[in-house]
Simulated assay, not measured.
Amino acid sequence: MTAADVTETADPAVAADALLQVRDLRVSFPGRGRRAPRTEVLKGVSLDIRPGETLGLVGESGSGKTTIGRAVLGLVPVRSGSISFDGELVHAAGRARRRALSRDIQVVFQDPYTSLNPSLTVGDTLAEPLVAHGTGPREARDRVRDLLDRVHLPADAAHRLPREFSGGQRQRVAIARALALRPRLIICDEPVSALDLTTQRAVLDLLLDIQEETGTAYLLVTHDLSVVRFMSHRVAVIHRGEIVETGDAADVTRAPRHAYTRALMLSAPVANVAAQRRRREAEEPCRLTGAP
């Protein structure tokens, strides 16, 4: 079976050349008690990402946005629906196929420190996926130097441990590791939310530069509409496990149609105190309820 056998999305123009296709995805987790009903986290989610495109997936905490990324990575079981990559259904792929897919699909997690092995040097961390996929030692060392240069870290960083770096530098290491196998899609799960504002901008600029040079597609999972506006070509807004609005980033962030998206925008902080007060007053009638 291929992606052609799966129901199309509402936007055929996007679906026609999509690199990643998610169709009617449903994910549920067991309840806490033996007889407790299962909790449905995703309720029929569909989305597409084209080659070289950034899709911003935005929603509040608990909306299910991170679960979508984990499902694409094969880290949570899919109850129903499908996930296809480059025309191949992969949601039920076995271990060997998942390992092969890691060349094409990588991830950058929110916390750069916990996502790095504290006992491995940066050089060993970056070389590990290369060696696992059959790269020779000399070629791996050359690739590590290239990766460090690509994320603007000094060559001697290869001999240092993660704890010797700042949060922003560790996130650069995590990005370098994601780039090691030259993937076609990177899932960025809140990649800058743990960083200060100045470092956030530097990391986002780096991700944009990488995308321009390599053509890598991003699934950008975030709660921050300002990050979505800065990074994304298109936006999908998720609320309580359902996509409630999709469209071009400029259209969705400037003139959202759904009440939940409008409430998200009102809840985002602004630098001007008076403007923030007015926005909070406007927010009261629809405080992230999704109601019109």
Rank of each mutant, 00 (worst) to 15 (best):
A250Y: 09
V192L: 00
G134Y: 06
Q21N: 11
D11I: 10
G69P: 09
A15P: 08
R138E: 15
A263Y: 04
G31Q: 11
L197I: 14
I187P: 06
F109T: 03
D209P: 12
H239W: 12
L89Q: 15
F165P: 01
G33Q: 12
R229P: 11
I49T: 05
R184Q: 11
P191M: 00
L181H: 04
M265K: 12
S267L: 12
V192E: 02
L89C: 13
Q110W: 09
R143T: 13
R141I: 05
V131R: 15
V144I: 01
R143Y: 06
S46V: 05
V273N: 03
T9Y: 07
L148V: 01
G247N: 02
H91K: 06
E242A: 14
T9G: 15
A16D: 13
R254A: 15
N272F: 09
A16W: 05
P129L: 08
A249Y: 01
V90P: 10
A92M: 07
R262G: 04
E164T: 03
M1Q: 07
V273L: 14
P118D: 12
E88F: 02
T222H: 13
D142M: 13
M231F: 07
L47T: 14
D5K: 00
T67R: 08
G215C: 09
E128H: 03
P37Q: 03
E213D: 15
E281S: 07
D5N: 13
R70Y: 12
L207C: 05
I238C: 00
T125P: 06
D11H: 11
V78Q: 04
P285Y: 11
G94V: 04
E40Q: 12
L185D: 02
R97N: 11
R34F: 11
G215R: 06
D5G: 13
V90I: 15
S61D: 02
G87I: 01
A174W: 08
V203R: 05
G56R: 07
L47S: 00
A178H: 08
V58T: 03
H233Y: 09
T2C: 10
T199K: 09
H133M: 11
A16E: 15
I243A: 07
S193G: 03
V76W: 01
A291Y: 00
T246I: 13
R35P: 02
T125K: 08
L101G: 03
H239N: 10
L288F: 07
L266P: 01
T222Y: 10
P77N: 00
R279N: 06
L181W: 09
G87S: 11
E40V: 13
N272Q: 11
R177S: 02
L47D: 02
F29M: 07
P137G: 06
A158N: 05
V235D: 01
I175C: 08
A100H: 08
R35N: 13
A250T: 15
G215Q: 01
R163L: 12
A202V: 15
T214M: 08
A18M: 05
E88I: 13
L55I: 10
P154D: 14
R150D: 12
P285V: 10
P183H: 00
T214S: 15
L181T: 09
D224M: 10
E281G: 03
V107W: 02
V237I: 14
V27D: 04
V235Y: 09
P137L: 08
